[in-house]
């Protein structure tokens, strides 16, 4: 009895530490930027929205803090949180530690939608909406297709995901081929590499709605995801309606993946590496793994985005950075002595 309590307490402490770490990272991120703002100015600007303070800073500083840094920091946290949560959830649904958020084609679909929108000369907000819709559409197609496959549903889903995903990738390649090379092609290429540059408050508000719905859904279903990892038959005999729970988890994960990818472009590795890292820190029980992955993902992407916007004078695409950080780290995790996945 006491043993269980201390066990539970240690997990809660780890999560509390992660929350504190996230908080610190957010504060530090506010201090980072190409536009130099002193600490005193920064905190006064931030608190001026809560308590009246005499303005001694420039208007442009306020623009930097509220229109540029704030939406970008929050977006980085949300996207990291979503990709990581979706990765963890898919790993459970597919009983496979190598599953990532794009396993059902959400990213390929979003990429196709975005490329198409750029080709047709859409505005950035319309690009975002098209990417989101195509992402949902792709996963919907994959799901419908998998229902028609015979045998193991999970394998049917994975195979349909690979198939439809590569179909949309081919579509994206075709669009790149016909795109105007002087402005559309670089825009598509840049979008595909992933970036949070130029995120506005409106985009943040739009994306936050599906993200919140999906994240809350995954959070409350997190215990059931444990049961899904046991396989269908075993899970059913424990009393879980596997089809319903799996569908719900897929819907939530797709919603947050689609919303993330549509604002940020393709950002790989977060959904694979962060859940793994979280497993190492807090174990495989989704009750703790899910919140830990969410917070870890937020911290990770925020840090990477800080590098992306501060390392060089120009923006470095996020997808490139996450791969640079993610791939070696993953190899390290895989090759560490005495550890198994």
């Amino acid at each position: 009895m006491a043993a269980q309590d201390s066990y539970k307490r240690s997990h809660v402490i780890v999560i509390a530490l992660l929350i504190i770490l996230l908080f610190i990272t957010v504060i530090v991120s506010f201090m980072l930027g190409r536009y130099s703002i002193s600490l005193k100015e920064l905190f006064n600007i931030l608190f001026s929205r809560v308590i009246p303070i005499d303005t001694f800073w420039s208007e442009q500083m306020e623009v930097v803090v509220f229109n540029i840094r704030l939406p970008r920091i929050l977006m980085a946290c949300l996207v990291g949180c979503c990709l990581s949560a979706a990765g963890a959830a898919y790993q459970g649904v597919f009983q496979n530690p190598m599953a990532a958020p794009d396993i059902l084609g959400a990213s390929s679909g979003a990429a196709f939608g975005a490329a198409l929108a750029i080709l047709l000369g859409a505005s950035s907000r319309l690009i975002m909406a098209t990417a989101f819709l195509f992402s949902l559409l792709t996963v919907g197609m994959v799901f419908v297709l998998s229902q028609r496959t015979k045998g193991n549903k999970v394998i049917g889903l994975i195979l349909s995901g690979i198939m439809v995903g590569s179909l949309f990738s081919a579509g994206t390649s075709f669009i790149k081929l016909v795109a105007d090379p002087s402005n559309q092609l670089p825009a598509i290429t840049y979008w595909l590499m992933g970036s949070l540059s130029g995120i506005t408050k409106k985009e943040l508000a739009l994306a936050a709605i599906p993200m919140a719905i999906g994240l809350i859904g995954l959070f409350i279903l997190r215990w059931r995801i444990n049961i899904l990892t046991l396989g269908d038959d075993e899970a059913r005999t424990i009393g879980v309606n596997t089809n319903l729970v799996r569908l719900s988890v897929i819907i939530c994960s797709t919603l947050i993946t689609a919303a993330s990818v549509s604002v940020s472009g393709l950002i790989g590795w977060v959904g694979l590496v962060i859940p793994h890292l979280s497993r190492k820190v807090i174990g495989n029980n989704y009750r703790y793994l899910m919140p830990a992955s969410m917070i870890f993902g937020a911290i990770f992407l925020l840090v990477v985005d800080n590098i992306s916007r501060n390392l060089l004078a120009v923006e470095i695409p996020l997808g490139i950075l996450t791969a640079f950080v993610g791939a070696p780290f993953f190899i390290y995790l895989l090759t560490r002595k005495g550890e198994t996945l």
Binding site: I68, S195, S197
Partner: peptide, 21 residues
């Protein structure tokens, strides 16, 4: 002259803070 990067529609290599500063 320093290279600031270019914009593609809404997003791009042009870091908005670099632009402001």
């Amino acid at each position: 002259l320093p290279v600031l990067g270019q914009l593609y529609g809404g997003k791009g290599e042009l870091n908005l803070e670099t632009l402001l500063s």
